[in-house]
Design a protein around this nucleic acid. Structure first.
Length: 775
DNA sequence: TACTCAACTTAGAAACCACGTC
DNA sequence: GACGTGGTTTCTAAGTTGAGTA
């Protein structure tokens, strides 16, 4: 697997960064620890010695959620009525509040709003660098190349690509009026077809909207109850293994070797992955071979003793061919497959929850395969066994129609537990963890939780000043435990680090979060590049994604870190007196419902809100506004360290886009020259006809410039997004109401920033948010 | 209180699909 | 119509949290 290594600190110069220096410590880890948190048990002892802080539940915001929500809902409805009345009165004379903004600050800033001490201003180096970089980019673009796009009554850009095409074609048509009648008819027909399809789509959309369960207008169930009625058809099992044709052979030591069905199936899993990096990794190969041998007959096991002597290429070619075949199927065949899938989805992909039809997220059982653990996962390559009905626990209501197991099979258990959200579960064999079949993200259960999550994060806004003050005071606590807790919390807050649970050694990849940071993950510099008290972080976080960042910290934090590292060596825990349960317990005492991960949500959302405010220029064109949104989104993605592998085709597609831009520039130059000549000629001859030609050429130049501007914006956006994944923050950390309010305020079509999945997931926010929403 | 585990959220990769271009 | 590209959807691994248990 590709290991990403994009430093948070500087996206531009990441190629120049020092090589990651880890891979050492494992042997050190097993050595005894100096004191305190030798391993899990010792930590607990430390907690006892230190004594516990009294739980002080916050006295504010004690209103039950349901009650609060009801009041809010009523208020919203009332407000909505008023607003719509106002809107009608105002009719189309909508105007917008224009805010004074400094475009110089429209940079990708990796941090938060200033707190009471102004401490949380972005690290100088970071913001300065970014600002400089940005001034030469779309900052200038948006200023110098204003584009006037056609806007509809709501001010939304309406000139879609097909429409533009139509327009161009129309112009061409005028130039060449002698088109063949048949061709015109055909065009008309396709046009009609298109219109019909669009109408159908619209109708479907309206129907969907009508069908939507507006759960957010209903009262929530009492604590713990997730549903009162649940009925479903059970999961869909993986199709049975299809044996290889006789012509496709497996070779061992250069000779064909027929395999038993079971061994052949497991061999096929490896063969299918032959072009994947996984199959070159030693751990993967070893684990695979060990598990494969377990599936072999005694005879096979006697013969096949070395994976290096196994030749799967014929099998690999066969499966590749199958894939090709599938790709090259006729339109009819593809349609047939699509219909079959749709049928399956309609039958098994939905459940009835409290008599509302809800989409299931993952109704198909994971097929048998090789385990693809990320990073240096010690279990990668192990066989994930086929799941049978006998492994499945079904959860549904007593009074529902119990799903039928496949013929000849029975369920492991059928239970009726309405305090959980899952419909079916099984225990997988590689890690022994439980897997679930749950509802889709747009369901009531998921949506309700999501809404709650953002409400907790908003609540933190009112407590954060006190919390920051408290942890700063604790930097000087006499208790080591308290000091460590304070510094860890400072990092979680300032850098949006994850909590960092303890992990079983050797069971998973060696990744860490804040509380599980080890000595080798940070370096301290009393002074670095003109900054004082710099901490350099370098560790693998969730999914083995590298976190690399150099951050100037407060003097007391720096001194504490020096203290925490005293007499410790690589492999030792930095926060040896701290664990996530201890930290979360403390957070609960500061604010009800507060846990470490709430800081990530809070800081992500507040950053988006601030960045949108800073970056949005009321005067700029629609594409530039969208670029600003993406940049705000990007600032959050950088904060949360959401990375992705650059798309395989990135360089090529970028080069294509650049050559298109060059071509467009040429075209503009030529068009301008022609315009100049036409103007001259029209002036000389004073002809009405020539004046019209001038006007037409003017429009041509303008159109080409608009196209160029759009391409340039696209190129900037794409370049900046090369290694950053925007979707994760958009989907999980950004309060959707901020985005919806922004769209409404600047009359940007919501579909420009949210695709259908997002709009469905955030239907509750779309429905309830007004322009004045503040996180 | 320590520990385990179920239940749920968060995450990136891969597969899929629609659309534009030639 | 083939092909390439990029957005969307699906898949499932990898986290966090809280409840139960000894």
């Amino acid at each position: 697997m590709t290991q990403l290594s994009l430093p948070v600190e500087d996206l531009v110069s990441f190629h120049n960064l020092p090589e990651k220096a880890r891979d050492k410590k494992k042997k050190l880890k097993s050595e005894p620890k100096p004191e305190g948190k030798a391993k899990k048990k010792d930590k607990g002892k430390a907690a006892v010695q230190d004594g516990e802080t009294q739980r002080q539940r916050g006295k504010e915001n004690n209103m039950p959620v349901a009650e609060e929500r009801e009041i809010k809902s009523d208020k919203r409805k009332e407000k909505k009525k008023k607003d719509s009345k106002k809107k009608k009165e105002k009719n189309s004379s909508e105007h917008y509040e224009i805010q004074q903004q400094d475009p110089q600050t429209s940079s990708v800033i990796v941090k938060l709003e200033p707190d009471e001490d102004g401490d949380f201003a972005p690290a100088k180096k970071q913001s300065k660098g970014k600002k400089r970089a940005r001034q030469g980019e779309a900052g200038e673009l948006s200023k110098s190349k204003k584009v006037k796009l056609e806007e509809d009554a709501d001010g939304v850009e309406t000139e879609t690509k097909p429409q533009k095409k139509k327009k161009i074609k129309k112009e061409e048509g005028n130039k060449k009026p002698k088109k063949e009648e048949g061709a015109i008819k055909a065009k008309k027909k396709t046009q009609e077809e298109k219109e019909a399809a669009a109408a159908l789509k619209l109708k479907k959309k309206e129907e969907e909207e009508q069908m939507r369960w507006r759960w957010w207008e209903e009262e929530k169930y009492e604590d713990g109850i997730k549903w009162k009625f649940l009925e479903h058809e059970g999961p869909v099992f993986a199709p049975p293994y299809e044996p290889l044709p006789d012509s496709v052979k497996f070779y061992y030591d250069g000779k064909p070797l027929p395999l038993s069905l079971q061994a052949e199936e497991v061999a096929s899993f490896f063969a299918k992955m032959l072009d994947h990096e996984y199959t070159t990794k030693e751990i993967f190969r070893n684990n695979y071979f060990m598990d494969w041998r377990k599936e072999m007959t005694l005879e096979e096991r006697m013969v096949i003793t070395d994976l290096a002597k196994c030749d799967f290429t014929e099998m690999f070619t066969y499966y590749k061919g199958k894939m090709e075949e599938k790709k090259n199927k006729s339109k009819e065949d593809k349609l047939k497959i699509k219909e079959e899938n749709e049928k399956l989805l309609q039958e098994y992909g939905y459940c009835s929850m409290d008599h509302h039809r809800e989409r299931i997220g993952n109704f198909k059982i994971e097929p048998p395969a090789l385990f693809r653990g990320r990073g240096d996962h010690p279990k990668q390559g192990m066989l994930k066994k086929r799941i049978l009905p006998e492994d499945i626990i079904i959860n549904c209501s007593k009074d529902s129609k119990i799903p039928e197991p496949p013929p000849g099979h029975k369920w492991k258990e059928v239970r009726h537990d309405n305090t959980v959200t899952w419909l079916a579960s099984w225990t997988e064999n590689v890690q022994g963890s439980v897997k679930y079949i749950m509802l889709n993200a747009n369901s009531k259960l998921k949506g309700e939780k999501d809404w709650e999550k953002y409400e907790v994060a908003r609540k933190l806004k009112h407590h954060v000043v006190t919390i920051r003050k408290t942890y700063r005071e604790n930097f000087k606590s006499k208790e080591m435990k308290v000091r460590q807790r304070a510094v860890a919390l400072y990092f979680i807050d300032k850098l949006a680090l994850r909590a960092g649970n303890e992990k079983e050694e050797g069971e998973t990849a060696d990744t860490v979060g804040c509380c599980s940071l080890r000595v080798e993950h940070i370096k301290l510099y009393p002074e670095l590049d003109g900054d004082k008290y710099v901490v350099e972080f370098d560790f693998l976080g969730k999914d083995s994604i590298r976190y690399y960042n150099k951050v100037p910290v407060e003097k007391q934090v720096f001194k504490n870190l020096q203290l925490f590292m005293e007499n410790k060596q690589e492999g030792d825990d930095l926060f040896d007196r701290l664990s996530t349960p201890l930290l979360n317990k403390h957070l609960q005492s500061l604010m009800e419902g507060l846990t470490a991960k709430v800081f990530r949500t809070y800081n992500a959302s507040i950053t988006l809100q601030q960045q949108l405010q800073e970056l949005t220029d009321p005067e700029e064109s629609m594409p530039s506004k969208i670029l600003s949104y993406n940049r705000a989104n990007r600032a959050v993605a950088i904060l949360c360290n959401h990375q992705r592998a650059p798309p395989k085709t990135f360089d090529q597609s970028m080069a294509n886009l650049k050559s298109k831009i060059d071509a467009k520039k040429e075209q503009i130059l030529l068009a301008k020259k022609e315009l100049k000549e036409a103007k001259k000629e029209a002036k000389e001859k004073e002809s009405e006809k020539l004046n019209k030609v001038v006007e037409s050429k003017k429009r041509g130049v303008q159109r080409a410039e608009e196209q160029l501007m759009r391409m340039e914006v696209q190129a900037t956006d794409r370049e900046e997004n090369k290694q950053i994944a925007l979707s994760t923050s958009k989907l999980n950390y950004l309060d959707p109401r901020i985005s919806v309010a922004w769209c409404k305020k600047w009359t940007v079509g919501l579909e420009k920033i949210y695709n259908k999945t997002y709009r469905d997931k955030f239907a509750w926010a779309v429905d309830m948010t007004e322009t004045d929403f503040i996180f």
